[in-house]
Design a protein around this nucleic acid. Structure first.
Ligand code: SF4
Ligand code: SF4
Lengths: 162, 162
DNA sequence: TATAAACGGATGAAATTTGTCCATAACAGA
DNA sequence: TCTGTTATGGACAAATTTCATCCGTTTATA
C-alpha cells in the first residue's frame, strides 16, 4: 500500500509548471535539474502526465512541457491517477469460490460485501483528492516556502527559460 | 498502490472465525483448507492478526484461532492495518529541499501542502474502513451466498470442529 | 541542415511481495 | 510424564514490481 514516489515527483513538477509564464515550456532536463532527480526516469513520469492530457509537450528546441489547462482545473486526483493508474487498490481473487464449500462463478451474482466496502473507502480517498486543485497546492507552496527560496527559484526560472 | 492480497485472506479468515461457536477455535490448517490457500503463508497473516490483538491463538491440540472480541467491535480498518501496517501510503522524500533552489531542513517548518492533502485523503479512506464492522461483513456475506453453499459451509465447520 | 527535445521500447538493477522450511515453545489429552 | 498437535518467529528462496538507464525514432526550431 505504498504510492510510488513518482507521484511526489509528478505533483512537484506540475506545481513548478504552474509557475511557468504562458506560452513558455520547461524541458525535462530543467525539471530534473530543479529537483535533482534522475532525468531519464523523470521523463517517463512526464510522459504519463502527457498521455493523461494534464500536460502538453512541445518537441524540438525551446520545447518542453507546459500545463494543458489552468492549474485551477487540474486536481491532485488527475495527477495521482496519471502516475498510479486507475485500477482499484483492492482486487479480489475470488477466494470464496475455492475450497470445499466453493461454487462456480455463476452461483455468485454480484461482488461481495467485502469488495464493496473496500471500494467505497477507496472512492472516498479519490473524492478527497479530487477536491484539491493544483492551484491550491501552488498557493500553499508559495505561502510556506521561505522568501529567500522563492527568490532563488524565480531567478532560476528566468535563466531556465532564456 | 496495490493492497497485498493478504488483506483479502485476512478479512475472509476473520469472517469465517466470526461464524465459529464460542470457546471453539479453528487451526490454520483448517482455514487454509477452507479457502484453498498456502498453509505456511496464511499462517504468517494469522500471526499478524494475532499480534494485532484481533484474534487470539491457542496452542496445542484442539487449539487454533478465535476472534479476540465480538465481531461488532472489529472494524475492517483493524484488519487492514494489521496486515498492511499503519504507515502512510504517501511518504515524501523532501525533494523540495534538493536542487538549485533548495535549502536545509531548518528552512521548512511544517509539512507542505502536498503532503497535508495526501494525508487528509488517506485519513478519509481509513475513516471509511473504520465505519464497517466485521459483523456487517458477516451479515452481507451470509445474505449474498447461495443457500446451498451456506449449508455446505455449515456442514464443513461441524466436521472441522469435531 | 544541425540541433534540441519528446516518445516509446528494450533492458537491467534493486526492492518488495509471495511463499517455504525449520527449530522452538506451549498446550491438551492419555 | 509422554506424545502429538498447534502457534511462533527467523531464515531463506522465488516471483513480481518498481526504479532506472539506454537508444533509435520522430518532431519541431532556428
Ligand atoms: S468474497 Fe468478496 S473479497 Fe472475497 S473473493 Fe469474493 S469478491 Fe473478493
Ligand atoms: S514539498 Fe511536500 S511533498 Fe514535496 S518533498 Fe516536501 S513535504 Fe514532501
Amino acid at each position: 500500500m505504498k504510492l510510488s514516489e513518482g507521484v511526489e515527483w509528478a505533483i512537484h513538477a506540475c506545481a513548478l509548471l504552474a509557475a511557468v509564464p504562458p506560452r513558455a515550456a520547461l524541458p525535462t532536463r530543467k525539471l530534473a535539474e530543479f529537483f535533482d532527480l534522475p532525468l531519464a526516469y523523470l521523463a517517463k513520469h512526464l510522459q504519463r502526465l502527457s498521455n493523461a492530457g494534464i500536460v502538453i509537450a512541445r518537441k524540438g528546441p525551446r520545447g518542453g512541457y507546459a500545463l494543458a489547462r489552468p492549474a485551477r482545473e487540474i486536481s491532485l486526483l488527475d495527477i495521482v491517477e496519471a502516475i498510479e493508474g486507475r485500477s482499484p487498490c483492492f482486487s479480489c481473487t475470488e477466494i470464496r469460490r475455492r475450497g470445499p464449500s466453493g461454487a462456480p462463478a455463476t452461483a455468485y451474482r454480484r461482488p461481495c460485501g467485502i469488495a464493496r466496502a473496500m471500494w467505497k473507502a477507496e472512492k472516498a480517498w479519490r473524492a478527497e483528492l479530487a477536491r484539491v486543485s493544483l492551484r491550491e497546492i501552488q498557493a500553499m507552496g508559495l505561502a510556506e516556502t521561505p522568501a529567500a527560496q522563492v527568490k532563488k527559484a524565480t531567478a532560476w526560472m528566468e535563466t531556465a527559460l532564456s
